[in-house]
């Protein structure tokens, strides 16, 4: 099996992967980073969203091998020095989560939305850009509010 070396949450890591190993499998099974979830097989639910080289992608539809040399950020790497990222804080403050299963992907997607659209991203843009993240609990109402308030503090 080929060895894969990359950076995950700022740390250099390496592991042996098969050709078919998906990034999400590498993160969960080899690195034990179980905050990244799998909720579907068709690249739609968004519970697996992580950042690869600064871009939000669905880690269930990325081959681990293709991430050689890349820099990956997962939900576990978002808080810096023990302090919650403003988007994590906003999800807490606005009650943007219930069962929590979609939450890591939702937060990673939200951070990416703000990075590309700025602090004043409007509600319509947030809703449109969350089309790749499903939540069954919240009705999205408080998630949208959380993204807006998290954006303001980013």
């Amino acid at each position: 099996m080929p060895t894969l070396s990359l950076k995950v949450n700022g740390k250099a890591v390496s592991g042996e992967v098969e050709g078919r190993t998906l990034l999400v499998e590498f993160l969960r099974d080899q690195l034990g980073l179980t905050g990244t979830h799998v909720g579907c097989d068709t690249s739609q639910c968004g519970t697996c969203v992580v950042h690869v080289d600064g871009k939000a992608v669905k880690s269930c539809t990325v081959l681990a091998a293709s991430c050689a040399g890349a820099s990956v950020t997962t939900i576990e790497g978002l808080a810096a020095n023990g302090k919650l990222h403003p988007m994590q804080q906003a999800f807490h403050e606005e009650h943007g989560l219930q069962c929590g299963f979609c939450t890591p992907g939702m937060i990673m997607a939200a951070v990416d939305i703000v990075k590309r659209n700025g602090k004043k991203v409007d509600e319509e843009t947030i809703r449109r850009e969350l089309s790749g993240n499903l939540c069954r609990c919240t009705g999205y109402h408080n998630i949208v509010k959380a993204v807006q308030s998290g954006a303001a503090n980013m």
Binding site: T34, G35, T36, H95, G100, F101, P104, I107
Partner: peptide, 17 residues
């Protein structure tokens, strides 16, 4: 505000899988 949130927003939830 919910006490349980912290583990979910930091990726430390513990689901069966």
């Amino acid at each position: 505000k919910r006490k349980e949130d912290n583990r979910f927003i930091t990726g430390k939830g513990r689901y069966t899988d």
